[in-house]
Design a protein around this nucleic acid. Structure first.
Lengths: 197, 197
DNA sequence: CTTGACAGTGAACAATCGTTCACCTTATAC
DNA sequence: GTATAAGGTGAACGATTGTTCACTGTCAAG
């Protein structure tokens, strides 16, 4: 068997395991890996797993049980748009990551809201976009926050000057808001997500 | 024990299991759930798991093995910004989802690129943003694509009129590109992701 | 031609798995 | 007050787990 064919075989096996994990959300057992890879012997699976551990595709936790490695991170990260698409050989070296891990720090305090209205268009937040809001973080000046002003909820830049607070839209057609009464801040916008199709 | 206290206990147990799954990427075994929940008897765990199955927090696959339910989807989805933050009671009813699942259709063909340059600012894609690019989808007119024009990679709107192809920036300071030679399209932009802090 | 290294089969093994049984305690409902 | 359900302990059990050992082909390098 040629080197390329062996590489391809290994790759398809990794793909099979990744698919299994994607589909079920749990790691396959050794026998199941055997079925996926077409191996009858658990020893063969053992050797395969060892190899995948070295490649960081899989890992082990403190108790020696199989945990996902790079297969848990679905997106391959490349460089910049200008760099374009590297060759397949380079692609393998690229880092992989999970969007959940990238964007969510505190899962219990994080919510997703759909944006309505165009008051933040200037900041690249369009109506229909989704924003992740963290209730736990303390809002700093310059943050985009979700706040309740005089009974209505909006999303605006927060500006603090001394002890005065202003809510600044990112659209010149709207005016800054200087809340008269209390200002309830629901959370800090930590990320924006837009889906095209 | 009051009803509220029992609810709170169950909630913290769900949280414990979710944390375990977050941390390790695998489902805990029954004994491990016991440790997490402070239960010495596996029978107690069995009953707890049954309850969590009914709540769709956990599930079973075809082989009867534990798979994650809603705990695999880290973000709670709420309504619109205008709706603001619902009361805690309503929060529980909200859907949960995973950003990976939401944004990635074809994981093998999807890459993430960092945006450099401001030629798509008008479409709400700012320099520094990250875009998900699907190499597998066939580009349609109106899509945002990553393409190589005359040796350089850019991101632009794709416009097809008959059999002429134009690349349209979303910034008036740049001009439309009508590729003279061949046009290599790397992929279709399926999502935009921006992280604030 | 020989010699390793690699990829795989098959079987034995203790450890751990999840299921199930009998039983106990404590609230809540009637 | 007395059922009754809910929440829990503890132990027994067969099934399945992952490790390990001895062994067999097969290819490529020396």
């Amino acid at each position: 068997m040629t080197r390329d064919a062996r590489d391809e075989k290994l790759r398809s096996r990794i793909g099979g395991i990744a698919q299994f994990y994607d589909r079920t959300g749990r790691m396959p057992s050794f026998s199941e890996i055997g079925e996926l890879a077409g191996l009858r012997s658990k020893n063969a699976v053992s050797k395969l797993v060892l190899k995948l551990e070295r490649l960081r595709v899989l890992g082990r936790d403190g108790k020696g049980r199989l945990i996902p490695g790079s297969i848990a991170f679905p997106v391959r990260m490349l460089g910049t748009v200008k760099a374009g698409f590297p060759s397949p050989a380079e692609e393998e070296l690229a880092d992989t990551l999970s969007l959940d891990e990238l964007l969510i720090r505190n899962r219990d305090a994080t919510f997703m809201l759909r944006v309505s209205g165009d008051s933040m268009t200037g900041a690249g937040i369009l109506p229909g976009d989704m924003v992740l809001v963290d209730k736990g973080q303390t809002p700093r000046s310059g943050d985009i926050v979700v706040a309740e002003v005089d009974g209505e909820w909006t999303m605006k830049y927060l500006r603090r000057r001394g002890n005065s607070v202003t809510l600044l839209p990112a659209n010149p057609r709207y005016k800054p808001i200087r809340p008269r009464n209390e200002l309830r801040i629901g959370g800090v916008v930590t990320a924006v997500v837009r889906k095209y199709r």
